[in-house]
Computed example of a mutant assay.
Amino acid sequence: MTAPERGTLLVDARGRVGVFMGMGGPRYMLRPLGGGLEWEADPGVVRPATSTERLRAENARCNARSRGDVL
């Protein structure tokens, strides 16, 4: 399996949407769209985010930014 491009939005097995940051050994490293700590995800169970999931993640980021939680 080829790794996605950096910045691709993916959904992990728990339903969390994250930005693909790179590889951590054999695992994908994902980061919340609004920033925060990266987490590891199994490449065999992640999938690209749907348009609805992308919209929700962007909306959450905008809300966090309006509260001053995100630069």
Rank of each mutant, 00 (worst) to 15 (best):
L33G: 01
W39Q: 03
D42G: 12
C62R: 15
M21T: 14
L9V: 05
E53V: 08
L37H: 11
V19R: 08
R56Q: 10
V45S: 09
E53D: 11
T52E: 14
G15N: 08
R65W: 04
R14L: 15
L37Y: 11
L37D: 12
L33M: 07
M29C: 06
L10F: 12
L10N: 09
L55P: 11
A64L: 04
R31M: 14
E38R: 03
T2M: 06
D42T: 14
D12L: 03
R65K: 09
L9P: 00
W39H: 03
R31A: 11
E58D: 14
A49Y: 11
E38L: 03
L9Y: 03
V17F: 01
V70P: 00
P43I: 14
F20V: 08
Y28S: 15
R14E: 15
R27N: 10
V45N: 03
G36P: 00
F20M: 06
W39F: 06
G7C: 10
T2F: 04
A3H: 07
G18N: 05
R65I: 06
R27K: 02
G24M: 05
A49H: 08
M1P: 09
A57M: 05
A60F: 02
E40L: 12
V11H: 02
T50W: 03
L33R: 04
R16H: 10
R61L: 14
P48R: 07
R65G: 03
P32L: 13
G18D: 08
M29Q: 10
T2A: 09
F20N: 05
L10H: 10
E5H: 06
P26T: 08
L30H: 06
A3Q: 13
A57Y: 00
G36I: 05
A57F: 02
G35A: 06
A3R: 12
A49E: 14
G7R: 03
G24P: 01
T50S: 15
V46L: 03
V70K: 00
R47L: 07
P4S: 13
L71W: 01
T50G: 08
E38N: 09
R16E: 15
P26M: 10
R61I: 13
P4Y: 15
G44S: 02
P32R: 07
R54A: 03
L55A: 10
G24K: 03
V11D: 09
N63D: 13
R54S: 04
G24F: 07
A13M: 05
L10V: 15
L10Y: 10
G35T: 13
A60Y: 02
A41F: 05
M21A: 11
L71H: 01
G24S: 09
R56E: 15
P4E: 15
W39I: 10
G35K: 04
V45K: 01
V70Y: 00
A60V: 11
A41G: 07
S51G: 06
E53I: 11
R67Y: 00
R61N: 05
L37S: 10
G15T: 12
E58T: 08
A41W: 01
V45F: 01
G15F: 07
G68D: 00
G7F: 02
R54Q: 10
G15W: 06
L37V: 14
